[in-house]
Design a protein around this nucleic acid. Structure first.
Length: 323
DNA sequence: TTTATATCCCATGTTACATCA
DNA sequence: AATGATGTAACATGGGATATA
C-alpha cells in the first residue's frame, strides 16, 4: 500500500484541506481530495443542490463542489499532485453535517440510502457505511456515558437516603431499648412492692429468655414487636410511645405485622442487644463491597436506563433492605 | 427438509492520521 | 517547532441473518 515510501507523508499533507500546498489552487485540492479513492465522482448539480440545500449556503471553504463551478482542469494537477495512494482525510463540515442529519433520521443505512447519500456527497458508498458505523459507535459511547452519569447520581441519592434511614433506624432502636429497660425496671419495682403470687407472675419473669417485656407488659397489652423497615421514617419515635394510638388500641396496626420479613425488633433475634442487627448493618455498610457491586451490575446490565434508573425491584431490596 | 457455502451488515476494537492546545 | 491529547476515517475481525445450491 505504502508503495511511494517517503513520499506518502508528503502526499498526505498535500491532501490536507487547510494546508498550503504546492499545487495551483486550494479549490482544486478540495475538490480533489474529496473525490477520495475513486476517480473524481464529479456528479452534476443534482447531488450538489441537494447537499447545498441540506447544509445551508456559503461555506468558508471552497468545497469539493467548487470544482464544477470553477472549471476543473483536472488531469494535470490530478496527475501531479493526487495520483497517490489514498490516505486518510477528513470529511468536510458540510459532508459531516449532511451525514449527521441523515443519521438523526435513521441511524442505520439501507443500501439504497447509502448509495443515495454517497451520490449526494460525492463519496464512496463504503465511506458512507463506515461513517455510519463509526457514528453509531460514537453515539453508543455517549449514551453509555450519559447512562453512567445518571446511574451514578441515582446511586448517590439512594445511598444518601439509605444513610439517613439507617441513622433513623438506629435512633429508633435505641429509643425502644431505653423504653424496654424502663418497663423492666417498673416490673421489678412492682414485684418487690407486691408479694409474689403465682397468678400475678408475668410471663416475663417466668420465661425471661423468650418473653417480650414490651408485649407482655400489663401496661402495654399488645405491644407491637415488629415494624416494617420501610415505614421507619414515617413511624418515627411515636411508634413505641405507650401513649400512642398505635399501641393502645390492642390491635395490630398495619405497621405491625408480626411475620414481617424485618426482624429488627424481634426479641428472639435481637433480645435488644442489637448485636445481629449491628453486624448486619456493618456488613451492609462495608464500603468495599457495596458500591462496587452496584457499579458492576449497572455496567453489565444495559437495561439500566434513566426510566427506572436501572434498579430492578430485586436489586433495590437487595441493596437496601436485605436485613 | 437439511446442510453447506457465500454474501452482507453490524458491533467492536484497533490503527493511522489530523488537529489543537 | 515539538509534543501529547483528542477526534475520527478507515480497517480488521468475528458473529448473525439471509439467500442459494
Amino acid at each position: 500500500m505504502e508503495g511511494c515510501g517517503g513520499n506518502i507523508t508528503g502526499t498526505s499533507s498535500v491532501l490536507l484541506q487547510n494546508e498550503r500546498l504546492p499545487c495551483s489552487s486550494h479549490e482544486a485540492l478540495d475538490s480533489l481530495w474529496i473525490s477520495n479513492s475513486s476517480p473524481p465522482p464529479f456528479h452534476g448539480s443534482t447531488s450538489m443542490v441537494k447537499f447545498g440545500d441540506a447544509r445551508g449556503e456559503n461555506t468558508r471553504e471552497k468545497t469539493f463542489f467548487a470544482q464544477s463551478d470553477k472549471g476543473y482542469d483536472g488531469s494535470e494537477s490530478y496527475d501531479n499532485c493526487f495520483h497517490q495512494p489514498e490516505k486518510k482525510r477528513r470529511l468536510t463540515a458540510e459532508q459531516v453535517q449532511f451525514l449527521e442529519r441523515s443519521f438523526e433520521l435513521e441511524n442505520k443505512l439501507d443500501p439504497e440510502r447509502k448509495v443515495q447519500l454517497a451520490k449526494d456527497l460525492s463519496l464512496q458508498p463504503r465511506q458512507v457505511a463506515i461513517w455510519f458505523q463509526n457514528r453509531r459507535a460514537r453515539y453508543k459511547t455517549k449514551q453509555l456515558e450519559k447512562e453512567y452519569d445518571c446511574l451514578k447520581s441515582s446511586y448517590d441519592k439512594l445511598r444518601a437516603d439509605y444513610d439517613t434511614l439507617f441513622k433513623e433506624n438506629e435512633s429508633l432502636k435505641n429509643e425502644v431499648h431505653s423504653l424496654a429497660e424502663k418497663l423492666v425496671q417498673r416490673e421489678r419495682g412492682k414485684a418487690k412492692s407486691e408479694p409474689l403470687d403465682s397468678s400475678t407472675i408475668s410471663p416475663l419473669n417466668a420465661e425471661p429468655q423468650k418473653a417480650n417485656p414490651i408485649a407482655l407488659s400489663p401496661n402495654v397489652p399488645e405491644m407491637p414487636v415488629s415494624v416494617k423497615q420501610e415505614d421507619a421514617s414515617s413511624a418515627k419515635s411515636d411508634v413505641f410511645d405507650s401513649d400512642s394510638s398505635h399501641c393502645t388500641d390492642g390491635n395490630h396496626s398495619s405497621l405491625m405485622v408480626p411475620d414481617d420479613s424485618s426482624h429488627v425488633f424481634e426479641p428472639e433475634l435481637s433480645d435488644f442487644s442489637q448485636d445481629e442487627d449491628d453486624s448486619l448493618s456493618r456488613s451492609l455498610l462495608q464500603p468495599t463491597g457495596f458500591p462496587p457491586k452496584l457499579e458492576y451490575e449497572c455496567y453489565n446490565d444495559l437495561q439500566c436506563n434513566s426510566g427506572n434508573l436501572g434498579f430492578s425491584v430485586e436489586d433495590q431490596s437487595t441493596w437496601f433492605w436485605a436485613y
